[in-house]
């Protein structure tokens, strides 16, 4: 499978983000960099989502943004501990579609969560260490649970996915 995108936030392509063999330390670090890039994008994206929602519906946005911010910091620290330079956030990101309504904002939140789910499933694919897989499976699940909420709010169907983060 391909990675969720490169370490600078580029969308998924047909090329893996690393030439290292899956299960190697190098491949694991590269996948964690991809996950970090996705978390950067999610933190930024939730700022946009929150601005497009009415105040009464922002509670979950704040909670989700905090979760992604905490995870971003955790992954960054993990990479630093390994002697890797954590990928930085981009100054700005291009929205996949214009936000013209609250429904659009909820759709964007779902897209953000799907991106991070894919990134963490990719970490599962590439990871060398059990502890990394433990982190990845927890975070993939957390992101999918949030994605379900946002898909429902956006009126998308189905709201659940059989194998989130993997091609259908």
């Amino acid at each position: 499978m391909t990675g969720p995108g490169d370490s600078t936030g580029t969308p998924a392509t047909t090329s893996p983000t690393t030439s290292a063999e899956a299960g190697s330390a190098r491949a694991e670090d590269a996948a964690l960099q991809d996950a970090l890039a996705a978390e950067h994008a999610a933190v930024w994206g939730y700022g946009t989502v929150g601005a497009a929602l009415t105040p009464g519906t922002r509670g979950e946005v704040v909670a989700a943004q905090e979760a992604h911010r905490d995870l971003r910091d955790r992954v960054g620290a993990l990479l630093l501990d390994r002697g890797a330079e954590p990928v930085a956030a981009r100054p700005a990101y291009a929205l996949p579609f214009p936000l013209l309504s609250e429904v659009d904002a909820c759709r964007l939140a779902a897209v953000l969560e799907e991106g991070t789910t894919a990134a963490w499933v990719w970490v599962l694919d590439q990871a060398a260490q059990r502890t990394t897989r433990e982190l990845a499976v927890v975070e993939a699940s957390a992101a999918e649970v949030r994605a379900v909420t946002w898909r429902a709010r956006a009126g998308l169907s189905p709201v659940t996915a059989a194998t989130p983060g993997l091609p259908a």
């Binding site: 499978m1 391909t2 990675g3 969720p4 995108g5 600078t8 936030g9 580029t10 969308p11 998924a12 047909t14 090329s15 893996p16 899956a22 890039a37 996705a38 994008a41 994206g45 981009r90 100054p91 700005a92 990101y93 291009a94 929205l95 996949p96 897209v111 953000l112 799907e114 991106g115 991070t116 789910t117 894919a118 990134a119 499933v121 990719w122 694919d125 989130p164 983060g165 993997l166 091609p167």
Partner: peptide
């Protein structure tokens, strides 16, 4: 230019997968 937001993986490359 702004970086596109990451999107879910959409293709497979690994033969084993």
């Amino acid at each position: 230019a702004p970086a596109p937001l990451p999107r879910p993986a959409g293709a497979l490359t690994r033969r084993t997968v």
